[in-house]
Amino acid sequence: MRMISATFAMVFAFALSFGGAHAQSVKSGVERLYILSCGEGVAGDISLWSPGINEGKSMDFVDSCYLIKHKQGWFLWDTGLSDSVAALPNGLPPANPKFIYWRRAKMLAAQLAELNVSPSDIKKMAVSHTHPDHIGNVELFPQAMLYVQKAEYEWPNPDGTPRFKPEHPVTKVEGDLDVFGDGSIVLLATPGHTPGHQVLLVKLPKTGNIVLSGDLAHFLSNWENRGVPTFNTSKEQTNSSMQRVADIMKKENATLWINHDKVQRDGQRLSPEFYE
């Protein structure tokens, strides 16, 4: 009888442990997620993103930012093109016509105001990486704690200057990080596009689990074919990071939201609508 009781107790404890973990994932600290329009553009030659495929073909791109309401406060993922681009009548043409000709119709500050959110309300933020279409408005939030991979933070601009203002509060992440400590918003290190690229796993209570791609992939076929852009800092790291995220998505039953994929985003709800 003692043996049976002990076995039953072990099974019961395991069930409680499993149930507790499951309940934690269901009772996410995330309340809602807004997709913000942070730029629109046209790539001159998408074979730069998928070498050997569609050479000379152009493609429409979008640039998304994501505002997340967590029980502990507001969190912003990526900041898009600088709001100053909205004032340029001809947009922001690239130095190389094969790259993206960017325009900005909606300012990030205006979209936040529409939600009655002021920049000072955002206490935590993170960027996938430090290309200009992702960090353009970091300094709209000078008091927000910036979470960025240490390798990315220490990677200088081509002219040797730092990519962020030294006075901006920063947490230099090394590897993965559970931002709020409840598993609902997790930074995942995915180097390759840049030395310290990262993606974001978000667990929404109703929509389910999603991975915000940053520039791990730029459009769906880029992801499906494991296309590595010619300008990535490491093809080997990119391939490893893509496989890592694919494995995590399978484990977490997560969907990939690709930042620059216009076709995917055209089917999504944009702010002021939201996902729960």
Rank of each mutant, 00 (worst) to 15 (best):
D176L: 06
P142T: 07
E152Y: 02
D121I: 04
A144P: 00
T171Q: 14
G41S: 12
Q143F: 05
G136P: 04
V30H: 00
K235V: 15
V202E: 00
P51E: 08
E31Q: 15
V138W: 01
L115G: 06
L188C: 09
P89Y: 08
F180Y: 14
E236N: 09
R2L: 15
K250N: 14
G80R: 03
A95C: 03
F219A: 08
L200D: 00
G41P: 08
A110H: 10
E252H: 06
L187W: 02
D182F: 09
T7Y: 11
P191I: 07
P229R: 07
D182G: 03
S128I: 02
K57E: 14
S37L: 11
H193T: 02
W74A: 03
H193W: 01
T207I: 00
T161I: 03
F219I: 03
Y34Q: 02
N54F: 09
M145R: 13
L270C: 02
I35C: 06
A217E: 08
I53E: 12
P156K: 07
G44R: 09
K106T: 09
A126Q: 02
V186Q: 07
A246T: 13
R103G: 13
L216K: 06
N232G: 08
V263N: 12
N54G: 05
E276L: 14
A109S: 15
L177V: 09
A6E: 12
F141H: 01
M242D: 10
I185Y: 04
T130L: 11
L216V: 05
I46D: 06
H131S: 11
I4G: 08
K235H: 13
N157I: 05
M10A: 13
S120G: 09
V245A: 06
S234G: 07
Q149E: 11
S17W: 15
D247K: 14
D215I: 03
M242C: 09
H22F: 12
S58N: 10
V263E: 15
K123T: 10
I68A: 03
K165F: 06
E139G: 06
D215S: 07
K172P: 07
G181Y: 05
T207W: 03
L177T: 07
R163D: 01
N54V: 00
F164M: 11
D215N: 08
N96K: 12
W102T: 06
A126K: 01
A43P: 00
W49L: 15
T79D: 06
Q237R: 13
E174S: 12
I68G: 03
K69S: 14
H260K: 09
G175N: 08
P119N: 04
L112H: 02
P93Y: 08
T171H: 14
G19R: 10
V42P: 00
F75K: 04
P51I: 10
